[in-house]
Each structure stands twice: as C-alpha cells, then as structure tokens.
Amino acid sequence: MKKKLIRVTTIPNSLGKLLTGQLHYMSNYYDVIGVSSGGSALEDVRKQEGVPVMAVELTRKITPIKDVKSVYGLYKIFKKEKPFIVHSHTPKAGTAAMLAAKLAGVPHRLHTIAGLPLLEATGTKRTILNLVEKITYACATKIYPNSFGLQDIIIKEKFTRKDKLKVIGKGSSNGIDTNHFNPDLYTAADNLKLRTELGFAPEDIVFTFVGRLVADKGINELILAFKKLAAIKKNVKLLLVGTFETELDPLNKASLDYIYNNDTVLGIGWQEDVRPYFAISDALTFPSYREGFPNVVMQAGAMKLYSIVTDINGCNEIIQEGVNGTIIPVKDAEALYAKMLQFYDHKEELYNPNTCRAIMVKNYERSYIWEQLHQEYISLEK
C-alpha cells in the first residue's frame, strides 16, 4: 500500500507550472494529493497531473483572518487524510501548511524555499516576515532551499539549524525538460516568420526578459540600460514576456512611459509557451534582485541563449562567468548596459551556444531532479 503525499502551493499555477510533471511522477510511488487555492486552474492541475486535488483558499498577501481560516482548512484535510509527507512550496503555503501539518501530527513536514521576498523588506515589515519565516522552519522537519546560495542566506539569517537544510541535486525545484526546451524544434523559417510578425528585422539583436514585469525583477534598470544602448545602436530590440503587477510591485513612471511609447520595446504579455520567443532571441537579460533558482535562466540556456544575470543565488550557480553568460551586480543599470553593449559588439566571440545547452542538460534535466527528490522521500521511510 502506497504512503500518502500531499503537495501544497499558494496558487494552482505553482502546482501545475512550476512543478510540471512532478506530482504525476511521484504518483508512481505515493498516493499524491495536490492542494492549492481553488478554481478552474486547480481542476487543470488534476487533469494534467492525474492526481486528486483539494481547494483551500490561500492568499499571497498578509491577511490574518483569511490566513487563520487557511490553516484550519489545511488542518482538517491533514487530519482526515493522514499523510506520511506534507511538502509545501511558496511562502504563504509554506507557513500555513507547516503549521497545520504540525498541529495535525504529520510525521514528515517538508518545505521547499524557492526565494525569499523578505530580503527586499525593511523595518517592521522585515521583522514580521523574519518571524513568520522562523515559525515556518520551526514547524517543518526538513527545509529544502532550491539553491546553495539560498541555503547560505538562511544559515546567515539564523532562520533554522543547518542540519535541517538540504539542497536537492544541484539546485532547482523542478529542473527543466531539455527535450521540450530545445531550439532544434524551431526552423529558421519558423523564427523568421515570428520575428516578422513581431516587427523585428532579421538583423535585429533581440534582448529578451521573461517573467513578471515588476521592480524587484530589475525591470527599471533594464529599461535604463536598454534606453542607453538603443541611443547608439539602431538595430536593437527589447522583448518583454510577462505581465505587470501594479498593486504588488509597480514599475516607475519613466520605465512605463518608455515601454509604452517606444517602438524598440515590445511587451507581449503572459505567454503559455515561451519557447518560440527564446528561439528568436539573441540573449536573455535577467537583472532580478532576488531569486530562488530561476527556471527562466535554465530554459534560456537550454535554448542556447547567452544570459546576462545578476549576482544573486540561483543565477550565479546556473551561469558560469564567460562560459554560458555573464554576471553583473544587482541594481546596476550601468553594468547591465556595458554587458549588453559587449554582447552586441562581440556576440560571436563571447560564447558557444552548444555549451550553454550542454550545461543545462548535464545539471538540471527534470528527470534527474525528480529522482533525487524521490530518493530523499525514500530516506524518510528508514
């Protein structure tokens, strides 16, 4: 008889997209249940992963009354289902699930850390978030930072004991499917057609960002750097793939004005499949302030793109300086501009596209991450 495994995230998109295929894989060995906020997206997870799902309303913001209800809702599920393992992802789900699992007497309470939003907070807000983080870790039996840099930060901040921490494999929460993220799936004709549809000329150098278009992803610095580059190089384009979050983390007015009023920048919103846009791009620009282990950088590498990233955990583990990309200081628009200019002037000399892909295949193939996590689960049974 299989042991029961419950996976919990704040929103269904995290279960279905960030952890694509993982619940289905684990269902070969465990009775898996997915838990997240409800709606049609959660039903999509059920169909995609082939596992039962349950809805508990969870919010990304600090909402004390709703949060207490969330903990109680999770507690009831855990008491009824009696799982061997509860494994949570994302900050709010982690706090609620670990507390509820401890109250319910779940023997193995696991939480994956894929980033620490609190690192950008200050004052009272930072104090509160630090306390919440410590409560989450105290309730968990094991914490899995998804990068070695993130593990170092957790130890430095004294959120928990070192022996509670472990990085699965070489990092990442789910790895990537390198057969799926493969530029050979797209012909030169495919790429030319899409470039033409987007208004890009064949000779344009296209810098691309994929992710949320928010301040802490470094978009304000990216716009400043690109604006300076576009002033001296006429055949450059900036492709922005993602959505704005005007309530949580808006861009400044100057950035928004430039995005909306300049034909060298193209925002195409959220895309279900980002591969065609990587295929027509020349380089990834990813100047984020904080990450866990960014899928975008792995995906771009598998698609043979050179990546310009900031010196933060995750990014500085995936990118090897001068091999598959380059690393710049955080919040440094001038450094970003200099590296974009260098790429423009010396693209052919900077890197080998095949090497970019080979590093991703070797270190971050999805099946490798899944098996490493499965082995971790097995170790709990001993």
Rank of each mutant, 00 (worst) to 15 (best):
T178G: 01
P145R: 08
L165S: 11
I6D: 10
V8A: 06
A93V: 05
V45G: 01
A231N: 09
P276I: 11
L251F: 09
V309I: 11
A189N: 12
T196R: 05
I205P: 01
T355S: 07
M303N: 03
V106D: 04
V106I: 13
L131I: 14
E376L: 01
F84L: 10
A114D: 03
T90C: 11
G149Q: 05
D249A: 06
F200C: 08
Y75F: 15
V265K: 06
F148G: 02
Q48S: 14
P117K: 01
L42K: 07
L239M: 10
N363L: 05
A338Y: 06
E376A: 13
Y25I: 02
A138Q: 10
P250I: 03
L42E: 04
Y258M: 03
G301M: 14
I153D: 05
D67N: 09
R126P: 01
L165Q: 13
L150T: 11
A215P: 00
T326R: 10
K156W: 02
E272T: 13
I378R: 14
E334T: 12
F148Q: 08
T90D: 12
V361Q: 14
K66Y: 04
E49T: 07
L118H: 06
A335Y: 00
V8H: 11
E348H: 15
N352H: 13
S379T: 15
S288Q: 05
L194C: 10
N352G: 07
K382T: 12
M54N: 05
E120I: 12
F343Y: 15
G123N: 05
G314F: 04
S37Q: 07
V71H: 13
G38N: 07
L198Q: 11
K17A: 02
K347P: 04
Y260S: 03
F200A: 08
H346L: 10
Y144T: 09
V206E: 07
K339M: 10
N324Q: 09
M26H: 12
P250R: 07
F293S: 13
Y260A: 01
I143W: 04
T127L: 14
E247F: 13
A358G: 06
V323S: 09
V297Q: 02
G218Q: 03
Y260E: 11
I223L: 02
D311M: 00
T9E: 07
M298L: 15
P12D: 08
P107L: 12
N261I: 05
S14F: 06
D216F: 02
A104H: 11
A104V: 06
V236M: 01
A338P: 00
E334A: 08
K162I: 10
V296Y: 00
V106H: 05
D190K: 09
K17W: 02
I143C: 10
I319F: 11
N28V: 00
N261A: 02
E371H: 08
N352R: 11
A114Q: 02
L118I: 15
P250H: 04
D257M: 04
A279K: 08
A358H: 11
L110F: 10
G175A: 05
G16Q: 07
